[in-house]
């Protein structure tokens, strides 16, 4: 068996070109995920963050270039073997109608099961641990349809944990959650990375959350990586201008000391052009 920790980067992509049909999203992109890191990919809408994640998880086959997992081409593994090493929580989820929490979480065991080995003790242990780690043990017998958005996200996370992979990719795990639940989910992720040896790769929209939780940031623009490294080194006023086209100040987060991006104040402008719209604008003093 080959050394699984190739240069401390079990998962890396070399010169991958990803796209859908005629559209190319990323061109000749290379990126390496440091082992044991909480890597967060940031960038403007449509810059190819989710596409990169799908490419890394072999859900999208690169037109050229290669993704390597544990020193081998990811395409060289049987698909179940990849699923025992690397998990992905997609952005859009479909819960089967009428499924219970424990049943859904149990489906995370699929890559470990066989036709006649469908529910071994390890499967049960993994599911129990996943439920406990995400704090949803009490919800186990409930129907997924009945849960709130925050609870449901925990269930999906539990399913990915039951898969027992050391690398976990998360596509916008906090979208649609209110700020308290965002912090909840990210705290949970940070705990997995810090105490359970997970390597996490997440796409996040909120730069400040990214800075607070990431140990490694990958900033993307137009399908290319423009900067990567520790948040305090990477997130600067010029980078935010370059990547998001936003004028801002970067100050220290008073709570965590990580970079905090504060958009610069802009005078409110009237953007409407027709007379009718202008008439609706309240008169300014």
């Amino acid at each position: 068996m080959k050394d699984r920790h190739v240069n401390g980067q079990r998962l890396h992509a070399q010169g991958i070109t990803l796209g859908y049909d005629a559209r190319t999203i990323t061109d000749d992109l290379s990126v390496a995920i440091p082992d044991g890191s909480f890597t967060v990919i940031v960038g403007a809408n449509g810059c190819g963050k989710s596409t990169l994640l799908r490419g890394l998880a072999r859900l999208l086959r690169p037109r050229s270039g290669s993704v390597f997992l544990d020193g081998e081409l990811i395409t060289a593994y049987p698909t179940k073997e990849v699923a025992r090493r690397l998990g992905l929580l997609p952005q859009v989820q479909v819960a089967p109608e009428g499924i219970t929490v424990v049943d859904l979480v149990s489906r995370g065991r699929f890559p470990h099961q066989k036709l006649l080995r469908q529910w071994a003790r390890e499967d049960e242990t993994a599911v129990v641990e996943a439920l406990a780690a995400t704090g949803i043990t009490d919800l186990a017998p409930r129907f997924v349809d009945e849960l709130s958005g925050g609870q449901r996200q925990r269930v999906w996370l539990a399913m990915a944990l039951a898969q027992q992979t050391e690398i976990l990719l998360l596509d916008e795990p906090t979208t649609y959650l209110d700020i308290a639940h965002q912090v909840d989910v990210l705290d949970l992720c940070a705990g997995l990375q810090a105490h359970r040896g997970y390597t996490l790769v997440a796409v996040l929209h909120d730069l400040n959350m990214a800075c607070r939780y990431a140990t490694h940031i990958v900033a993307m623009k137009d399908g290319a990586v423009v900067a990567e490294g520790h948040p305090s080194d990477v997130i600067t006023e010029s980078l935010v201008r370059e990547v998001f086209g936003l004028e801002c100040r970067v100050i220290d987060d008073p709570e965590s000391g990580t970079p905090l991006v504060v958009p610069k104040h802009r005078p409110v402008r009237v953007t409407g052009s027709t007379d009718e719209e202008k008439n609706h604008v309240p008169a300014q003093a």
Binding site: R54, A57, L59, T79, K80, E81, V82, A83, R84, G87, L88, L89, P90, V92, Q93, V94, A95, P96, R107, G108, F110, P111, Q113, L115, Q118, Q163
Partner: peptide, 23 residues
């Protein structure tokens, strides 16, 4: 009947099922 486990996994989204190792 041999495909029923695959069918169950296919009830999830395509990306979820693929990520869990379903071809």
């Amino acid at each position: 009947l041999r495909m029923s486990r695959d069918l169950r996994m296919g009830e999830l989204s395509d990306d979820s099922a693929a990520a869990l190792g379903l071809s």
